[in-house]
Simulated assay, not measured.
Amino acid sequence: MKYMLLVCGDDTADASGMAPVEPWVEEHGVRRAERLYGHRLRLPAEAVTVRVRDGEVLRTDGPFAETKEYVAGFDVVDCDSLEEAVEIAARHPVATIGAMEVRAFWDGITEDAETGIRRIDAELTEAARERDIDRMMACYAPDVEVFHLVTGEEQAGIGALRKALEGWFSPLTGPVHREVLELRVRPGEGSAFSHALVRMRGTRVTGEPLDRLVRVTTGYRDAGFQWLIAHEHVSVPPETPVAGERS
């Protein structure tokens, strides 16, 4: 389960005797792989507090509350229990002069990157077979950027991508078979990548077969409740025979 460790500093505390943070990051982030991500934050004086009242955006320079203690940074850890997360937080050097607030992520709301990417891949395969462009579009972010195989040009935005896919499907008849021969996933926090070798097979309206092998490099974004494709680059692997295509 994932936990957020809020690193709470105290601007009146003497930090001269505090141990360095780097060994803690090395221990839990590299050796034990419990720390997924984290970073230090700028001081509260540089913060901007935003409120909306009656439709009006109210911006205030400075922190939400005037207090000696403030959130100086954060770390996201993945461990089996709250007790384990507390033990990790207790080892953080700032715990000796400030405080560490441990809060669990809501369970079951978001899917992990690996699961999300493989779900999207399966959805694209099913949608291609049904020639369901709406279903395919649901896998992409509204501001997606795609480098399309046919034109070689960039399509920016969901509308441009839809138009490109409609043009790709128009000379084909019947189902389009999308077979993923290879899929390598590179999960991350907030964003992720995959590299796939995909075979596309179908029949042209002229009766000619389409049999194309493509390599797809895809970037994904965590949209909060699901993962979406934010960037996609489609290309033909070198020295790959392409059947049913005119040069």
Score class of each variant (00 low, 15 high):
43 L>W: 09
41 L>K: 04
47 A>F: 10
27 E>W: 00
55 G>K: 09
62 G>M: 12
64 F>E: 03
9 G>I: 08
25 V>L: 10
49 T>H: 06
9 G>M: 06
9 G>E: 05
9 G>R: 01
17 G>P: 02
4 M>F: 14
57 V>W: 11
30 V>G: 01
37 Y>D: 15
66 E>R: 03
27 E>K: 08
35 R>W: 12
40 R>S: 14
33 A>S: 15
67 T>C: 11
57 V>D: 07
42 R>K: 05
47 A>E: 11
25 V>W: 08
20 P>M: 08
26 E>Y: 01
42 R>A: 06
28 H>C: 00
51 R>W: 06
52 V>G: 10
65 A>K: 01
24 W>Y: 14
67 T>S: 04
48 V>G: 05
11 D>E: 10
16 S>I: 01
19 A>Q: 13
35 R>A: 14
15 A>W: 04
34 E>N: 15
48 V>K: 07
10 D>A: 05
31 R>Q: 08
44 P>R: 00
11 D>R: 02
42 R>L: 06
42 R>I: 06
18 M>N: 04
56 E>L: 11
62 G>L: 08
25 V>A: 06
5 L>E: 01
31 R>G: 03
19 A>G: 11
48 V>D: 01
28 H>V: 07
34 E>A: 15
30 V>C: 08
38 G>R: 02
12 T>P: 00
10 D>N: 15
20 P>A: 15
53 R>H: 10
62 G>N: 10
37 Y>N: 08
